[in-house]
Amino acid sequence: MINNSKNKKNNRPCRSMLYIPGDSPGMIQNAPVFGADSILLDLEDAIAASEKDAARKMVRSFLRSFDFGDLIVTVRINGADTEYFKKDLMDIVPCRPDAVRLPKCSSPEDVISADSLISEIELESGIPVGCVQLHAMLETALGIENAYQIAIASPRVSALTLGGQDLTADMGVQKTRDGWELFYARSRVVLAARAAKISAFDTVWADINDPDGLFKESKQIVELGFTGKAAIHPSQIEVIHRAYRPDPKELAKSQRIVEAAKEAAREGKGVISVGGRMVDAPVAARAENLVAVASLYDYEEESPV
């Protein structure tokens, strides 16, 4: 029953997720040309109360008839504490987006109640139960503390995502350029997501006129272990992708390790060695990850080191 092409799509890396207001047809129709790995069609914060109905209809109409190509398409719905929540799910779920992003998840119960409603809608509209994934957005102090329980609350949860704006407000602090106030929350989200074997997405960089700040923060979250980061403007996509791009020297080293590991496996050796030096298994695993990420980039213009 499960649609293979969608599965394949969900195994693709998802470094960048571009927010697009659900009520902006001009931006939605251009989504495939921005170069993002995925898009987040927004029904929540980007949409005024008077246009909630219009955005819901617009997103539904595009999901039904528009070809988004390879893009992973996620819809951010309004929170369970709003009058729009149920309508959003009823209109959006039958159109089978890759995932819905559920804001303000503070407890496993928040996930469980959304999950059962989504299952009901899937059943009624005759699509496989479980086909629409759920991205749990953690943006309260309580949500961060419950991160792992939220991650494992339902097999539908395929990602944890950090909402930095609301979280810093809830913590009573300012969001700073260096981002120390989010350091623990970020680490917590990554560990919970990795423990549950799901993706971890970082919050947005709000200042679109500061690409250097965005690059620095992106580097930081790549190093912390996030699988992707949200963007609020198309110009931010390239910056985020650049932060995920492995260093050519590191890549060359990793390629040698991966080659050596293959050779060791071929020859039935238990030990991997590069240039006469032994390589530990976790080092080989990291090298393999890095080579996989590097396959998304074009290194031809540079001379190999």
Partner: peptide, 9 residues
């Protein structure tokens, strides 16, 4: 897709 959504709304 846009036309349809606007008429529906």
């Amino acid at each position: 897709a846009t036309l349809r959504a606007r008429i529906e709304t």
